[in-house]
Amino acid sequence: MSIKQFQVTFDCAEPERVARFWCEVLGYVVPSPPEGFATWADYDNSLPPEQRGASFSCSDPTGVGPRLYFQRVPESKVVKNRVHLCVRAGTGLVGDERLATLQAECDRLIALGAAHERTLYADEENESCIVMRDVEGNEFCLD
């Protein structure tokens, strides 16, 4: 049997903040709160104090993309990610058109709290891409 679905898990300091950032980046949505709770805040307030704000998730409303799960950890990010997301903003585009599309998406994400790390320009082998950081410093690429 082969696995067809998977979840991407982020270790972070503020799970809801990071989840809501990625909702905006990817067009993902926050699922409905558990039955019996009007809001996630209501649910969170029902938990013991040490568990409040400990996790959050979001998902692709089409059901195609993986669920993203964010869990609070005590340590902060220290080194480069070993795994990162590539946001496919320029698929099928080349040259100046691709770079302009990536830059427009970069500008949109900076307004959401992301940071521009560096732009890698096209060469003989690769098209341009932009390396960025999310609201907690996790690297990701616009390609």
Rank of each mutant, 00 (worst) to 15 (best):
R72P: 07
Y69M: 12
G92F: 02
V64M: 05
G95W: 06
N81D: 14
V73E: 13
C86K: 13
V73Q: 11
V64F: 04
R72G: 03
T91A: 12
Y69Q: 11
P66G: 05
P74D: 15
R67E: 07
R82Y: 09
V64N: 11
A89C: 10
S76I: 12
G90M: 08
V83S: 15
G95D: 05
L85C: 09
L68M: 05
V87G: 04
V94L: 10
G90W: 01
R88K: 07
V78R: 14
K77Y: 01
A89M: 09
V87C: 05
G95Y: 01
V79E: 12
S76A: 14
P74H: 10
L99I: 00
C86Q: 15
Y69R: 09
L99T: 00
Q71L: 04
R67I: 04
R72M: 06
K80N: 10
V79N: 11
S76G: 12
R72H: 13
V64C: 06
G95H: 09
F70V: 02
V73K: 12
V83I: 15
G92K: 01
G92M: 00
L68G: 03
G65H: 08
Y69D: 09
R67G: 00
K77F: 03
C86G: 15
E97W: 02
F70L: 02
S76L: 13
G90N: 01
V79L: 07
Q71K: 06
D96Y: 13
P66V: 02
V73M: 09
L85H: 09
L68P: 07
S76M: 13
G65C: 07
P74M: 06
R82I: 09
H84F: 14
E75Y: 15
R82G: 13
C86E: 15
F70N: 00
K77I: 07
F70R: 03
N81Q: 09
L93I: 01
L85N: 09
V64K: 12
S76T: 15
G65S: 11
E75N: 15
K77G: 03
R88G: 02
G92W: 00
A89E: 10
G90L: 04
A89W: 09
Q71F: 04
N81E: 11
L85V: 06
G95I: 01
K77T: 03
R67L: 03
K80D: 08
N81M: 05
Q71T: 06
Q71E: 04
P74C: 06
L85E: 08
A89R: 13
R88L: 06
H84K: 11
C86M: 12
E97I: 04
V79H: 09
D96W: 07
R82T: 11
L68V: 00
F70G: 00
H84G: 07
K80E: 07
V73W: 14
G95Q: 05
P66F: 01
K77N: 04
Y69S: 11
T91F: 04
R98V: 00
G92E: 01
K80L: 00
P74K: 14
V87D: 08
V94G: 03
G65L: 06
V87Q: 06
H84I: 02
H84A: 10
V87F: 02
R88F: 02
V94K: 11
V64I: 10
L99F: 08
V87S: 05
S76P: 15
G92R: 00
E97T: 10
L68D: 02
E97A: 15
P66T: 02
D96T: 10
V87T: 03
R82A: 14
E97C: 05
L99N: 08
V94A: 12
V64W: 00
D96F: 11
V83P: 12
R88W: 02
R88P: 03
